[in-house]
Design a binder for these strands. Structure first.
Lengths: 164, 164
DNA sequence: CGCAATTAGGACTAAATTGGTCTTAATTGT
DNA sequence: ACAATTAAGACCAATTTAGTCCTAATTGCG
């Protein structure tokens, strides 16, 4: 389904919470506020910490804070921290693990597609994400939309309009 | 890892093969040409057929052909045929299956992000994909890139340039 | 100092998903 | 009639993911 994992989902929730609250917040406090189990909150925060996206303070009164301003953290970073590299296809990461590698002439194009998606995700900041109904994200979607409404997206634009 | 499944990967390989060969071609012929097992080829083709992307002919001399010109088939369609709806988050498809749904204020923005990604994928045609080093895909990536090189993507542009 | 609160770094199990194979039925050209 | 072919879906093994738990290391506070 071209999905991110649940951990990543929780990760964005945790990060937006940290973006809204500049205090240092403990994993358990975040957990109770966000309806997560402490274990899950801890796991997510540890990963975010090793990726350098949050700053951890140990000991009593310890907790987590964003390592950088929310406007300087991108969704791409959050996703990569929790999910690994953003790459739709296997062959974009490791070579020689794909059985059809010789006969596959689509590899170069997959690279380009991955790049496009990473670029899109890199342009959405945590600050955008924390703002309800972000205009910047909507603007991005508008920019990606086909210029003259032609091309293979033609028949898709219909349901695109319908459901979002 | 934000990946598509292997079936989807095979699916694009099969579709590009069909795009290059206008004859009606059987599952087993495709399999041998593309280094796939017949079973896998059959499975993929059946799914592509139920999604209406290929046309199947039964019986002796039967096989598959593209249902439409390759330029009228988008990568979004292929991915959705084999992978289900393109939606990064659970909550974009079914409501009420997410434990943090109440406290999650990022849902609206996730919808926008999904939309952006679907739009990007809907603009890549099978014909683009079949062309080695498609200029149209590269142009899409360029259009998505941040206009004035600002925003939260700033520190990512570096590795973006480096690896693709 | 010693205790309580906290993060670090894993191991571990159960559940869910995916990949791959197989079986049987239906269709059609020769 | 037969051989080639797709349709439909059951099935199991392998992998991945989710969730829990345990044991250290660190630090503020009484």
């Amino acid at each position: 389904m071209l999905r991110i994992g649940k951990l990543t989902d929780y990760g964005t929730v945790v990060m937006t919470a940290l973006a809204r609250d500049s205090r240092r917040v403990s994993a358990s406090e975040l957990a109770t506020n966000l309806h997560l189990t402490v274990d899950v909150a801890r796991k997510v925060l540890k990963l975010l910490n090793s990726a350098g996206l949050v700053e951890a303070t140990r000991g009593a009164q310890g907790g987590y804070q964003l390592a950088r301003p929310a406007s300087d953290i991108s969704m791409a970073e959050i996703i990569e921290a929790l999910e690994g590299p953003i790459a739709l296809t296997e062959c974009s990461i490791h070579d020689h693990r794909c059985s059809v590698e010789q006969s596959c002439n689509a590899r170069g194009n997959w690279h380009l597609i991955n790049r496009a998606i990473r670029l899109a995700l890199a342009q959405v900041s945590l600050a955008d994400m924390a703002a309800p109904g972000s205009g910047r994200i909507a603007a991005l979607a508008r920019r990606i939309a086909p210029p003259q409404a032609a091309g293979p997206a033609a028949q898709l634009v219909e349901w695109e309009r319908a459901d979002v």
